Simulated scan of single mutants.
Amino acid sequence: MDGQATIGLIGGMSWESSAHYYRLINETVRARRGPTASARCLMWSFDFSEIEALQHAGRWGDLADRLADAGKALERGGADFLVLCTNTMHRLAGELQAAVDLPLLHIADPTGQAIVGAGLRKVGLLGTAFTMEHAFYRGRLEERFGLEVAVPGEADRALVHRVIYEELVAGMVRDESRQAYREVIARLVEDGAEGIILGCTEIMLLVGQADSPVPVFDTTTLHALAAVDRALA
């Protein structure tokens, strides 16, 4: 063994972003270790249609059971730590962690570290309605990193959520939706946001730094890079 830890990826939520995780992780390992190097990893990939239906039905207990099963399968397969390739399902991070003996690399932590490292205090959060409207994500950033996390107004939250579930998870990237997101970002900046968190792993498919007047924090990339750091540590 060469000392590289095995990453256990829980993906398929959606596979569009999970594919970017896989690419980013392997590109980074290759850049750090040489042209033929790649990551040692396992992936459990869900059928997102089933996950999405349970989310919108509010059946979080059933979702916790599914995450636990995935985590246990990766543990049996030899994973050394887990990466849950989605922001929304971190609502159940505690339940997943309790089900396995492996550490979970929480997506909010590398994001918070990057924001603090940039010297920012107030940030705007884009994500699914579940992520924007519940405390599991914002609360971790506020409590662990001392950040002030703002979310868009009600109409803007509905727009951001709709584009994620009706377009991005289906691989559709539309110019009109990009412009709509730019306008949401601009309103957050007008309200004092010093940075913008792309707090859904699909949003990076639609907007990036060029679409924002303030620094953008892409949770997909930050999480993937943190996974490589841990695997190669």
Results as ranks from 00 to 15, higher is better:
Phe145Arg: 05
Arg178Met: 09
Gly124His: 00
Thr6Met: 12
Ser18Asp: 09
Arg30Ala: 02
Glu52Ala: 15
Pro213Val: 04
Tyr137Cys: 09
Arg187Thr: 11
Ala150Thr: 11
Arg76Ser: 14
Asp218Val: 03
Gln4Gly: 11
Trp44Cys: 01
Met13Thr: 13
Gly11Thr: 09
Glu16Gly: 06
Leu74His: 04
Ala68Leu: 08
Ala170Ile: 03
Ser14Phe: 10
Val149Glu: 01
Met204Trp: 04
Ala233Phe: 02
Arg182Tyr: 07
Pro110Lys: 13
Pro213Ile: 05
Tyr165Leu: 06
Leu141Gln: 02
Ile196Thr: 02
Ala114Trp: 00
Gly77Phe: 07
Arg33Ser: 12
Leu125Cys: 01
Phe136Thr: 06
Arg138Gln: 12
Leu147Ser: 06
Arg178Pro: 07
Thr221Trp: 03
Met172Thr: 12
Phe46His: 09
Leu42Phe: 15
Leu188Lys: 02
Leu42Ile: 05
Glu166Cys: 08
Ala170Trp: 10
Asp62Arg: 14
Ala135Phe: 15
Arg162Leu: 10
Gly58His: 08
Asp80Tyr: 01
Asp218Thr: 01
Phe217His: 04
Gly3Leu: 11
Thr28Asn: 12
Ala231Asp: 10
Leu96Tyr: 12
Pro35Gln: 08
Ser177Pro: 05
Gly195Leu: 07
Val169Cys: 13
Gly3Val: 08
Arg140Glu: 07
